[in-house]
Simulated assay, not measured.
Amino acid sequence: MARNNQLVVPQAKAALDRMKVEIAQEHGIAFSPDGYNGNLVTRDAGTIGGNITRRLVQMAEQTLGGRI
């Protein structure tokens, strides 16, 4: 299966991985940063992904807000 979610800035991978673990911990979700996470229920995976998106949007808004 081809992966289409390639990072535009490959150096950001470590920061995104840390963000995943941090969000999982905040929500009490058992998450293995360097192992198998196939046991996550869809709701938990969605919680992690949704919060990552929320934080990235907030970061972009702050960055853009300083320029406008």
Results as ranks from 00 to 15, higher is better:
Ala2Cys: 11
Asn5Trp: 10
Gln6Asp: 11
Gln6His: 15
Leu7Ile: 08
Val9Met: 11
Pro10Ala: 12
Gln11Val: 09
Lys13Glu: 12
Lys13Met: 08
Lys13Trp: 07
Ala14Val: 15
Ala15Phe: 03
Ala15Leu: 07
Ala15Trp: 08
Ala15Met: 06
Leu16Gly: 03
Leu16Ile: 15
Asp17His: 02
Asp17Thr: 07
Asp17Ala: 14
Arg18Pro: 00
Arg18Thr: 06
Met19Lys: 09
Met19Gln: 14
Met19Gly: 03
Lys20Thr: 06
Val21Tyr: 08
Val21Ile: 00
Ile23Leu: 08
Ile23His: 10
Ala24Arg: 00
Ala24His: 00
Glu26Pro: 05
Glu26Phe: 00
Glu26Gln: 15
Gly28Ala: 10
Gly28His: 06
Ile29Asp: 01
Ile29Met: 03
Ala30Trp: 01
Ala30Gly: 06
Ala30Tyr: 02
Ala30Thr: 14
Phe31Trp: 07
Phe31Val: 02
Ser32Thr: 10
Ser32Leu: 12
Ser32Val: 09
Ser32Cys: 11
Ser32Ala: 14
Ser32Lys: 12
Ser32Asn: 15
Pro33Cys: 02
Pro33Asp: 04
Asp34Asn: 10
Asp34Ile: 01
Gly35His: 04
Gly35Asp: 08
Tyr36Cys: 10
Tyr36His: 13
Tyr36Ile: 04
Asn37Gly: 05
Asn37Thr: 10
Gly38Thr: 13
Gly38Asp: 09
Gly38Arg: 11
Asn39Trp: 09
Asn39Tyr: 15
Asn39Lys: 06
Asn39Leu: 08
Leu40Pro: 02
Leu40Val: 13
Val41Gln: 03
Val41Cys: 09
Thr42Cys: 01
Thr42Asp: 12
Asp44Thr: 01
Gly46Ile: 04
Gly46Asp: 02
Thr47Ile: 09
Ile48Lys: 01
Gly49Thr: 03
Gly50Gln: 11
Asn51Ala: 05
Ile52Lys: 07
Ile52Gln: 06
Thr53Gln: 15
Thr53Lys: 13
Arg54His: 15
Arg54Met: 14
Arg54Gly: 02
Arg55Trp: 00
Arg55Cys: 06
Leu56Thr: 11
Val57Phe: 02
Met59Arg: 14
Met59Thr: 13
Met59Pro: 03
Ala60Pro: 00
Gln62Pro: 01
Gly65Met: 06
Gly66Val: 00
Gly66Leu: 06
Arg67Thr: 10
Ile68Asn: 13
